[in-house]
Amino acid sequence: MLYITIFAFTLYCIVMSIRTIFIPNAIKGKLVSVENFLYLAFVYITILIGFGLIYILLETKGYEVMVEAYPLPTESFFERLETYIYFSAVTLFSVGYGDIAPIGVGRMIAMIEALIGYTIPAAFVAKAFIENERE
């Protein structure tokens, strides 16, 4: 039950973070500003950590999510979490390096994360441009 609650909360945080891009007046002022940069950085950080937690929760429940090309011989929980957050970052910001590959249910989750990673900048720029044109 605890895993379901953590999973649901993590998913809620990801969805609410993405939702803020589409809320009117979320992006204010100039197109390029420290406030807008920090806003976008926090959206990315929330999504990155959220997906990392989803991956490790699935592994903890016994699902195979990824396979590493160079696994470490013994890894603690925090080292695994670090690996999953790294995998999440590489998936969110690029196509991947090839040192870690998703398998099983991890493939579908990685596809969703990559899609989110590619659409956030476009949505952010479009929203900022539309808000700037209104002013």
Rank of each mutant, 00 (worst) to 15 (best):
residue 4 I to M: 11
residue 5 T to R: 14
residue 5 T to D: 10
residue 8 A to H: 09
residue 10 T to H: 07
residue 11 L to I: 14
residue 13 C to I: 14
residue 18 I to T: 14
residue 22 F to C: 09
residue 22 F to W: 13
residue 26 A to S: 15
residue 27 I to G: 00
residue 32 V to L: 14
residue 33 S to M: 02
residue 33 S to H: 01
residue 34 V to W: 02
residue 35 E to L: 00
residue 37 F to L: 08
residue 37 F to C: 00
residue 38 L to H: 01
residue 38 L to Y: 03
residue 39 Y to E: 00
residue 39 Y to M: 01
residue 40 L to P: 00
residue 42 F to L: 10
residue 44 Y to T: 00
residue 44 Y to H: 06
residue 46 T to F: 05
residue 47 I to H: 03
residue 49 I to L: 15
residue 50 G to C: 07
residue 52 G to E: 05
residue 52 G to D: 07
residue 52 G to Q: 12
residue 53 L to I: 15
residue 54 I to N: 10
residue 54 I to R: 11
residue 55 Y to H: 08
residue 55 Y to T: 10
residue 56 I to W: 06
residue 58 L to F: 15
residue 61 K to C: 08
residue 61 K to T: 14
residue 61 K to R: 11
residue 61 K to F: 05
residue 62 G to L: 01
residue 63 Y to I: 04
residue 64 E to A: 09
residue 65 V to C: 06
residue 66 M to R: 11
residue 67 V to F: 02
residue 67 V to G: 03
residue 68 E to I: 01
residue 69 A to H: 06
residue 70 Y to F: 12
residue 70 Y to E: 06
residue 71 P to C: 03
residue 75 E to D: 04
residue 75 E to A: 12
residue 76 S to D: 08
residue 78 F to S: 07
residue 82 E to K: 07
residue 85 I to T: 11
residue 86 Y to H: 10
residue 87 F to Q: 08
residue 87 F to D: 06
residue 88 S to W: 04
residue 88 S to G: 06
residue 88 S to R: 02
residue 94 S to L: 05
residue 94 S to Q: 07
residue 96 G to S: 05
residue 97 Y to R: 04
residue 97 Y to T: 15
residue 98 G to I: 13
residue 98 G to W: 06
residue 98 G to Q: 13
residue 100 I to Q: 08
residue 100 I to W: 00
residue 102 P to I: 10
residue 102 P to C: 05
residue 103 I to P: 00
residue 103 I to V: 15
residue 104 G to F: 10
residue 104 G to N: 09
residue 104 G to E: 06
residue 105 V to S: 12
residue 106 G to P: 02
residue 110 A to T: 09
residue 110 A to I: 06
residue 112 I to P: 04
residue 112 I to W: 04
residue 113 E to F: 02
residue 113 E to K: 06
residue 114 A to N: 05
residue 114 A to Q: 10
residue 115 L to H: 01
residue 115 L to R: 01
residue 116 I to P: 00
residue 117 G to Q: 04
residue 117 G to F: 08
residue 118 Y to V: 15
residue 119 T to Q: 14
residue 120 I to K: 09
residue 121 P to D: 14
residue 121 P to R: 05
residue 123 A to F: 11
residue 125 V to Q: 02
residue 126 A to M: 09
residue 126 A to C: 08
residue 127 K to N: 09
residue 127 K to W: 01
residue 128 A to W: 02
residue 128 A to Y: 02
residue 129 F to C: 03
residue 130 I to D: 02
residue 130 I to E: 03
residue 131 E to G: 02
residue 131 E to Y: 01
residue 132 N to G: 04
residue 133 E to W: 03
residue 134 R to Q: 12
